[in-house]
Nucleic acid binder design. Structure first.
Lengths: 251, 251
DNA sequence: CAGTATCCGATGCGATACTG
DNA sequence: CAGTATCGCATCGGATACTG
């Protein structure tokens, strides 16, 4: 990618950050994701070779250090201070996107794997008391088929010892709470476009199982970190502004 | 450009903003630049056809409205609220770039036209009292040649009636203050990498002409809006961190 | 001044397969 | 699990010339 040829720091920053996928990788790295294959889960449409290249570039820029965990010997990518200081930028960018590009929830952007991965990362496993808690997710809009070795419509969230694990196959444990929903509804709830209560009332989300878990559902179900951002007030609606301007010019 | 396929607002924002040149255009649009050819000056390496395309895309996204000035009939591009709300993002991005990507001032990024354009945009023409004030810039590191119809090493900044004009040809007015400098020094001063006083003392900038203007030079010379951002403290220097970690591991 | 039309080249990137 | 190697296409974008 050719340089912008400008001393302006906005240009310099853009040269690094405007590379395809780079901001999404930083989003995940700042979220504490460190393993190659975990990073892959966050950008499923990115090829592994390109991911590898991007990580090398980030390392070259000094935003990532590749370290080997002395215990497990596993490779890990850690965000450096240079990357960590992008947090406000990325947060604001997300807030802006949520505010102004939220209007439509495009079908191409619905991704049940991504959603469940996000949920598993944000759920707080310590809210469930001691012992093990298993939540089963079932997407009623997906076929009840097994593909390879797992169901395409079922996920299990296993919480124990302060950790949460997302399982694609039946872990064999008893399920404490079943959640029945469809991908669009669950994604909208996750993004704050539908209140949890409304989804429960309308039947977009159904809960079966332990009463205590179901009753506290609204409390322990995590939402996207962007769920609470507000839409722009209607007074800033562009069509409105233009219409008003035209009416003013005419009158 | 293919979609990231993610409902995440960071991804959605990136799809729009990570297009090549787009952030730089928004930088200028938020800076109040509205005319096509003025926008061109801010991105001299961008082809006009691509600029045209990007402006259409911004319009499609609702970040720009193309309007015709009722008086002059000239075409203007105005930032919408959607674009204006990117200001904190772009400011933070610039601050981050200034902080972390400042180390080198690459020769390819030195651009005297860009620099003089920036200066002319940021200088406050009201600081010079009534009547007209003319500042002449002369870059001693450039050849004293005429190219086409203008000198390649000379610029004139004409301030009058609360406006400032950048001239490439000798406007014919008497010059109140001559500034002799070289591009690298002037750019470094502009970016806050050299204090004005230091440049004056070392002779990197020489002033000839009206005593009052020369004495107040430090006051009226504008600097880049990023000039005051701080470098990261040495404690965050990556090489230092790694060296310390290694020393710790060894010991 | 404010763009548009056309062309073509570089290369970014995706797909797939493969490896220690 | 953590990547690498290879291939080839699509397309982005730069250059140039032209227009009302």
């Amino acid at each position: 990618m050719k340089s912008y040829g400008q001393y302006c720091p906005v240009a310099r920053a853009s040269e690094i950050l405007s590379q395809r996928w780079t901001l999404l990788l930083l989003r995940d790295l700042l979220g504490g994701i460190r393993r190659f294959n975990d990073l892959r889960r966050g950008v499923p449409l990115m090829s592994p070779s390109l991911l590898s290249r991007r990580l090398k570039e980030l390392e070259k820029w000094g935003m990532v250090v590749r370290v080997r965990d002395p215990r497990s010997g596993a490779v890990e990518y850690h965000a450096t201070p240079m990357a960590l200081e992008l947090r406000p930028v990325i947060d604001l960018l997300g807030a802006w996107g949520q505010r102004w590009v939220r209007n439509r929830l495009i079908d191409d952007e619905l991704d049940v794997n991504l959603l469940m991965w996000d949920v598993s990362l944000r759920v707080d496993p310590n809210r469930f008391g001691p012992g093990q808690t298993v939540i089963g997710f079932e997407y009623t809009d997906r076929p009840r088929l097994k593909k390879d070795d797992w169901w395409v419509d079922k996920w299990w969230l296993v919480m124990a010892d302060g950790e949460s694990d997302l399982c694609l196959r039946d872990p064999g444990f008893e399920v404490d709470l079943h959640i029945l929903t469809d991908l669009r509804t669950m994604t909208k709830v996750w993004m704050g476009d539908i209140p949890v209560r409304a989804a429960l009332r309308s039947g977009g989300i159904e809960l079966l199982g332990a009463r205590a878990l179901a009753d506290s559902f609204e409390d322990w179900l995590p939402l996207s970190s962007h769920a609470l951002h507000e839409r722009p007030p209607d007074s800033l609606n562009l069509e409105r502004i233009l219409a008003a301007a035209q009416a003013g010019a005419a009158g």
